Simulated scan of single mutants.
Amino acid sequence: MAKNDHNLSIGDKDCPLRVGFLLIPGFALMSYASAVEPLRAANVLTGRNLYCWRHIAIHGGETAASNGVRIHADASIANVGRLDTVVVCAGGNPQTFDHPPTLAFLRSAARHGVRLGGVSAGPYLLAEAGLLDGYRCTVHWEHIPAFVERFPHLQLSHSLFEIDRDRFTCAGGIAALDMMHALIRIDHGAGVAAAVSDWFLQTQIRRGEVAQRLSPTERFGVHHPKLVETLLRMEQKIETPLAPSELAVCVGISLRQLERLFARHLGTTIGRRYQRIRLERAKVLLRQTTVPIGEIALATGFAAPMHFSRSYRRHFGVAPRQERKAR
Score class of each variant (00 low, 15 high):
159 S>N: 14
51 Y>P: 09
136 R>H: 13
20 G>R: 02
61 G>K: 05
21 F>L: 02
198 D>C: 04
198 D>Y: 03
51 Y>I: 13
216 P>F: 05
94 P>V: 00
5 D>M: 07
162 E>N: 12
149 E>I: 08
171 A>G: 13
272 R>G: 08
205 I>F: 12
269 T>Y: 04
218 E>C: 09
221 G>E: 03
88 V>K: 10
122 G>N: 05
172 G>K: 07
316 F>I: 11
22 L>G: 06
314 R>C: 02
194 A>T: 10
7 N>W: 04
26 G>V: 05
139 V>N: 03
103 L>Y: 10
312 Y>A: 06
183 L>D: 01
28 A>L: 05
285 L>W: 10
239 E>I: 07
287 R>D: 03
272 R>E: 14
193 A>K: 10
313 R>Y: 04
52 C>M: 09
9 S>M: 05
90 A>D: 15
138 T>N: 09
1 M>V: 07
123 P>A: 06
318 V>Q: 11
279 L>A: 13
242 L>C: 08
130 G>A: 05
182 A>S: 09
128 E>T: 14
19 V>A: 00
217 T>S: 08
303 A>L: 06
244 P>S: 06
262 F>A: 02
310 R>D: 11
132 L>R: 02
273 R>S: 10
20 G>N: 03
108 S>R: 14
239 E>M: 12
246 E>A: 15
111 R>E: 15
65 A>V: 04
70 R>G: 00
304 A>G: 01
11 G>C: 09
138 T>I: 07
36 V>G: 02
131 L>D: 07
237 K>D: 10
98 D>V: 06
15 C>D: 03
155 Q>P: 00
103 L>D: 11
231 L>P: 00
138 T>R: 05
40 R>E: 15
92 G>A: 00
